[in-house]
Design a binder for these strands. Structure first.
Lengths: 239, 239, 239, 239
DNA sequence: GATGAATGAGAATTCATTCAT
DNA sequence: AATGAATGAATTCTCATTCAT
């Protein structure tokens, strides 16, 4: 019964080739992360390094949490020297905050982009559920959500930011959808508009589940979310 | 934008009287925590100290997380010397694990005790929801759940234990209830028995919410859970 | 042309015997510094260690200045572990300040004790000059004065303390003596009472001289101070 | 009780205009320091940069001491890139040494130039005293003297240089003056020629005083030096 | 059993120096 | 020549763990 602190000595440096999985790229264009093509100009190189640090930091922070992460490891994983981190970030905390924010942007983008496609509210939510499971719950992005849940209490400003930029916006969008569903007669219970959290809850549980128990007890998140939607919309479907 | 690391210098020691709020006692009998009455015999004294350490550790670990917690602070809060901790626990990690387990016992007890009271499944679940919000989401016990969510990824054995002792049992109990509901015609969608998580999800979201956003955006958890139950059982009640 | 930074690897630890010169003891009773007899009780041991750290710190700080001194070296020289320093002093700066203050006490004591012996003002000042040269200018105590001159600008509070506790008191005492000398007709120029610094100046120069040029160009400080006194009192003596 | 380490972020660079006070130019011709007129030829430009670095270094080293000075700050203050310093100086220490030497030249010049003007020895020394207070004790030049006193012990070669170039020459010049005074009957005590330090001592004390206590307890250095001269020459003047 | 002083490995951060552009 | 990004050795400070009292 040991805590996971296997020190990742000798992690792939940039020079020796990048072995990070594709899922690693969180809000970082894949070409940047790879560090294979080296841009000719200074600014691009700097941006690249910064991105590498953020990517490496994300890996480490999600794997170990804020306090247990060593900047030494972040540097090694990013393929830069320890001091280089400090050229881009004031201190460990600034890196952490910046990193979470950077990682959140694509989440926000996703959330706001989804409804656009059209169709019935039920269809929109179903697409949302599938996209969420595919792109968040079962990928690296889910780590960010888990990271925020884990460290949020210790970083109120982070929780605030997350609330402001993701949660309140997301819930507001969800409320709009629900109101649309009520107006169109798809959703019966009008009180649902007061608690968009209900609609989202199983999705969040899926995220936590994958992170904590996924390995031992996999969860068919898509099926679960579909049943939950049936609860909300009335179980027309047979799937 | 700072992390919360307010060092709790000069925390009430046992000698100077215990000022911790009642909510502090999590799975620790109040007489033990208080350290007011001093048992005459050795064994009882030892047990008392051990309990004080566990209680103090719970406070610190939930407030700061595993890595950021100082045993110094735990000792001070428990009113014992630092070395004493090592008389009871092999190391910091053993304390942490032991402590979470100890804290989980009453949760398990609660979960298994609830259905006993009788009534319709709907009534049972409603009682469960109220009890959960009252005793977990809005109290110190919620901190434990949040702690497990936060550190679970770093302590697989802990996540395993939690899964085995709490989650699987709890879900199994919930499944039984759901099947009862289906059999009695209270619940229409039979597939719900495959995903008891759906029933529990809003409750968990309430726990997370209180911990992260509760201060700025309070959530009427009871109302939310009731609406969710209406979704599951059909909205007979309008409360 | 190199700066002096010869790292004193393997300095005498307490265990291997104390090789520090006798002149080292600055306001620290010799029995304490030696660390030969180990006191039976805790408190005494602690005081002893604290004293050892202060003594070691004085050596290092006077030899290298504040910024260039490594606490590692102080610890090694004091025969304690690095962390032990932090049990006694908040940080490097606190050690430095505390150390200078501690070292100043005997200086103050000396200054205030000297006039007591009696005799003509001229005799008192001559005794003072001899004592100063013997006990300060040519010993470890002079290092403290030089240290304050060197770091004073960087540590205003230290300069303030030095001014308050040593300089102003010392000058005040000197003024009293001068006024006595004027009253008794020993000193002709009454304006000297306005500038006791004049009387002290050659003594200070002697301190600086020994520190900077003493090795190459020794200065007969006693002779110099005597001639200076002749200037002040009229050159009756021809020595 | 904090050490003074106010990091001079955003110091006026050469490009943004030089805001340093006139007193800054210590042995550096003002046109060089200003970096306003840009010479057309390479060599002149280089010399200009070198001078700017020296001037900036002087500011920083006198303000913080050798060890605590950051070349980053020197570069910023000089309006050059950090690397440029290394084009002119081997390393930090070379800059320091070179800088002190450069700064000392005008001091030497001053010392040797003064007696030339003629008049009685008393008059010469009085002129010297006034010039010293005006040009050294109360200006940036005093910082150099203080710097040498502070770092001299750590840089023996520097102390040697200072001794050779300034102290011994200066004292020799002073001895000549004293001998002149004795020959002319102005000075009675012939032994003064053996200790020119006595004549200089109050001037040095004035320098130290201004640096350490000047802010809180200003000293009328000119008045003090005059009284001291009266001691040496017999108090004819009452001023 | 308790204690808490002492330890020293370890982590964050700084900064002199180098070097590709 | 000049630049300033990058480096990594060095240093301060922390804290889990030990152990003499």
């Amino acid at each position: 019964m040991r805590a996971v602190k296997s020190k990742p000595r000798k992690i792939a440096t940039a020079k020796s080739g990048n072995t990070r999985p594709a899922a690693n790229k969180v809000g970082v264009t894949s070409t940047q992360t790879g560090r294979t093509a080296r841009p000719s100009n200074r600014a691009a190189r700097a941006a690249q390094r910064r991105a590498a640090i953020i990517a490496a930091g994300l890996d480490e922070f999600t794997a170990r949490g804020f306090a247990a992460t060593r900047l030494d490891d972040v540097a090694r994983r990013a393929g830069v020297a320890k001091g280089t981190i400090y050229l881009h970030f004031k201190d460990k905390e600034a890196l952490f905050q910046e990193l979470v924010r950077t990682a959140l942007v694509p989440l926000i983008v996703n959330l706001t982009a989804l409804p656009a496609a059209g169709g019935s509210i039920r269809e929109i939510l179903e697409r949302f559920a599938e996209a969420f499971v595919r792109d968040v719950a079962e990928t690296r992005r889910g780590d960010i959500v888990r990271l925020i849940m884990a460290e949020g209490a210790r970083f109120p400003s982070l929780a605030d930011f997350y609330f402001r930029e993701v949660v309140s916006r997301g819930l507001e969008g969800m409320r709009k959808l629900i109101e649309g569903g009520i107006a169109r007669g798809e959703i019966r219970d009008a009180r649902l508009a007061d608690f968009p959290q209900i609609v989202v809850a199983p999705a969040l549980v899926a995220v936590m589940w994958q992170g904590l128990f996924g390995r031992h007890a996999p969860l068919d998140a898509v099926a679960m979310l579909r049943i939950h939607l049936d609860l909300i919309f009335g179980e027309r479907r047979v799937s």
